[in-house]
Write a protein that binds this DNA or RNA. Structure first.
Ligand code: SF4
Ligand code: SF4
Lengths: 171, 171
DNA sequence: TATAAAACGCATTATGAATGCATGTTTGAT
DNA sequence: ATCAAACATGCATTCATAATGCGTTTTATA
């Protein structure tokens, strides 16, 4: 009998055909958000006359990530003008905007990419001319982003001190 | 300069590092919906004293899909008790419920799998204890499904005659 | 000038969806 | 009884792409 469990296609007691991860944000996107949170948490610090620059190495040490992947995300964030990057010795990067001006919807849409959540044309689906589904899903996607647009990087800073402590103690 | 285009990480004129497909529903899920639409479109037909059974071969011919993948989806739909499958000669499958009783939210959630849209624990993210993001994304996901729950398979049948014609003429 | 940092490009790996294939099982028709 | 047509099952393989790794180049500063 079907037990309603998720992620389980075949029920055959011993041998279970396990299912994938459903739709999910890319790590790439989450890494970008972590970087922004990292920067914001320290900026929210007391009197920062000199906002210390963060470096890729720092991020990687803190979160245990691959330097190269982070490298790309940082570069991307820089091109989006969400952070300012500085090359050369003592370089690094810092927020280019105030946290309240960095919309989560924008960040996620940009880092994740903005493709349709359902692909109808490659390969071509014969139902396309009379299909209501694609429109429904597309509107659902937009609702998701509309919801996200209520939040900003500042919304992620409600526990800024705790975050700052975690970040500074994590190896 | 950053041109705001999607899917384009490196702008370097000639050599562009192209980006993936963002978050997307699996083909598996869409195939399931196509199958349901196929069944519903013919059920919506005139006086069907005998609701003709559809077969996997039929679906594959119509949509140009792999028999094996469809096989699995049909099986899954059967276990979800959305369709009734009949083995043996002259077998096939048909809707087990009325289209208006088949919620798109349910179908998509089940076929797609119901994992979190953001993975925080594997590997473990140090920010987790103080992170607001995961909750925001989780609520966004639920909003998406809440929205989908407004619709049923019947909602996809507003152009049933056109669908039926497409399906019966598509090789 | 040496060094530390990001920028850039490309190669490789890891993961999982998508697909292929072979066999088993059920059921109606002959 | 037998056959053939359909779904059920299990596993192997392919393919796409995210994720990662590595090396070089550029920039800035001490
Ligand atoms: S069924 Fe509708 S949504 Fe799915 S691929 Fe075909 S046209 Fe697109
Ligand atoms: S940053 Fe927040 S959402 Fe992203 S992985 Fe860490 S805990 Fe989860």
């Amino acid at each position: 009998m079907f037990d309603g469990d998720q992620g389980l296609l075949y029920y055959n007691a011993s041998k279970m055909y396990l299912f994938g991860q459903s739709m999910q944000l890319k790590k790439y996107t989450d890494y970008g958000l972590r970087i922004l949170m990292y920067l914001a948490s320290f900026e929210a610090d007391e009197n920062c006359a000199e906002p210390k620059l963060a470096t890729i190495r720092e991020i990687c040490d803190t979160f245990g990530l691959s330097a190269n992947h982070v490298n790309k995300v940082v570069h991307h964030l820089g091109r989006l003008e969400l952070i300012e990057t500085r090359r050369g010795k003592n370089g690094g990067f810092l927020l280019a905007k105030k946290p309240e001006d960095i919309s989560l919807a924008f960040v996620i849409r940009q880092l994740e990419g903005d493709e349709k959540w359902i692909e109808c044309e490659n390969p071509y689906c014969v139902a396309l001319p009379a299909c209501e589904l694609k429109g429904i899903v597309a509107r659902g996607k937009e609702l998701f982003y509309d919801y996200l647009s209520q939040y900003s990087l500042k919304s992620l800073m409600v526990k800024a001190p705790q975050l700052r402590q975690i970040f500074s103690t994590a190896s």
